[in-house]
Design a protein around this nucleic acid. Sequence first.
RNA 1: GCGAUAGUAGUCUAGCGGCAGGACAGAGGCUUCCCAAGCCUUUAGCCCGGGUUCGAAUCCCGGCUAUCGCACCA
Length: 576
Amino acid sequence: MAEPNDIYEKVMELAKRRGFIWPSAEIYGGVAGFIDYGPLGAQMKRRIEDIWRGFYVIREGFYEIECPTIGVEPIYVASGHVKGFSDKMCQCPHCEEYLRADHVAAANGCGNAATLPAEALAGALKGAPCTACGEELGDVRVFEFNLMFNTQIGPGSQRKGYLRPETAQGIFTDFPRLLRFYRDKLPFGAVQIGKSYRNEISPRQGMIRLREFTQAEAEIFVHPEGKKHPRFSLYAGYRVPLLGCSGQEGKGEPVELTMRDAVAGGLVANEYVAYYIALTHDILVTVGVDPARLRFRQHLTTERAHYAADCWDAEILSKRFGWVELVGIADRTDYDLRAHASVSGVALTAYLPLEIPRMEKRKRIIPDMKALGPKYRGQAKEVADALMKADPGPEGAEVEVGGGKVFIPASLYQVREEEVEVRGEEVMPHVIEPSYGIDRMCYAVLEHSYDEEMVEGEVRRVLHLPAAIAPVQVGVFPLVSRDGLDTVATEIAALLTAGGIFAEFDESGAIGRRYRRQDEIGTPYAITIDYQTMEDGTVTIRERDSMAQVRVKKEGLGDIVRGLIAGNISFVSLGP
RNA sequence: GCGAUAGUAGUCUAGCGGCAGGACAGAGGCUUCCCAAGCCUUUAGCCCGGGUUCGAAUCCCGGCUAUCGCACCA
């Protein structure tokens, strides 16, 4: 699949040379799974994140929060990462190969290997041959390899901490605060952009699988029975290529459907999932993913988490890596809130008023404290509390107090039937989670933007980045650096910079060379100051993709450039 | 993690026991002036650590990194 000099190598060579992506700690030999964003890469990544914010924070109205990258252990006990985010491994004493302990045991005829604890697995492995070298394993130690980085918090009585494997958990743990912030209404959403960490056993594939990476996640809390999106009409007619479960046997081709049809036909579980599929498509195309190399693939029932109601991945076609997941969009139901409620003991529900309050008959048990007090003394309060939750028979009620069972005769309490008005109910929201891998998006955009074309016998290398994400927005060049052209160009560059435009002044080398330098880093426009500028005050604007030029007055140049970058003005409309 | 292959200037590459060479890029200058032109000058390199050898970029061992295969991939 990977011929030498394939597009990946060309893109990464350019990215390294021009300051998009560098290997981390290169002077110390580098570290697999970590990258640095150089000056242009950091700028481009930030612009992509800001476009993402434009969609999720500004348009959707989901405020951004920021949580620590280190979390205490119970968070990840609740999320399932402490248990489920690790593999049981062992090392063959003969060939030193690391093996998945459960796989070896299963190969040796152990039926329930996947669910056995470590000690039992070690027992099951005693007589088993190593799957690598064939020698008998004997007494091997089975250990957990957890994909989370761990650390200690503080000296002394250290609390165990983990570097977060996803940003989502911070949003879940802030749920009660967020619910208050959004004034006790559903639906609402919160987002987070930040670093996450996974100690991958063997990261390959450059920027695609990192040990430290940037995620942009949204958690949208919705009523479990209200999965109709209030703004669904915005994307109802939006067409997206969808590859459903059933289409994936053999060589399935995605079907292009409107979101309305996808939900009506049952392919996508609900309007929320469909809405964020469309919105994701919108974002990805906006930042420069080629729509012809983008599809949405539904998780197969076997790969989908057991709690998820539906899950779709946005995948891009990479020449090097095949289909690569960029975004996962899942209906996670109430799994996360339920888990955190259970581990923390805090109720993670919203109290929602009913439209019509209903009357409900309730049986209330009123302990007779005058009688209970002297009889049970110190335990009286505990007995009374237990009694109120008990289900009494005609003779009395049996309650559990201090680990033992106690029978309380009916004479010690009253049972009162009363009718109460129920004005609302506690609801545990369901969570819709679109989760974006920002680094993968950056790579996808670089690969899809990269182009080589022949111009007058020379290879012209261009990054066709959307103007909105290009690190440098405009180049400013004096045609020659004398006769005052350079002075005027410097003034124009300063003027643009003062107007918030990232402009790069360059007077070195022939004009064609300077255009090429900017083409290679994706700068969408170049302003050239020539002799005519000195006569009539006009400059030329050159468009990167067409290499065409138009002449405009230098007054109002800032507005034109801003308009071009924002997409409010088309280059063609400036033409003669 | 295992196996295979590789690592020479910013990038690409030649050299494969005996002075490390080139192209492009970069910087300075001359010249030309709207798409990587030319000329001059110049910066800059053998992945790291051991070993063998009179002598190692070159051979051997270990490590790191990259690519491929295996394994792994919430």
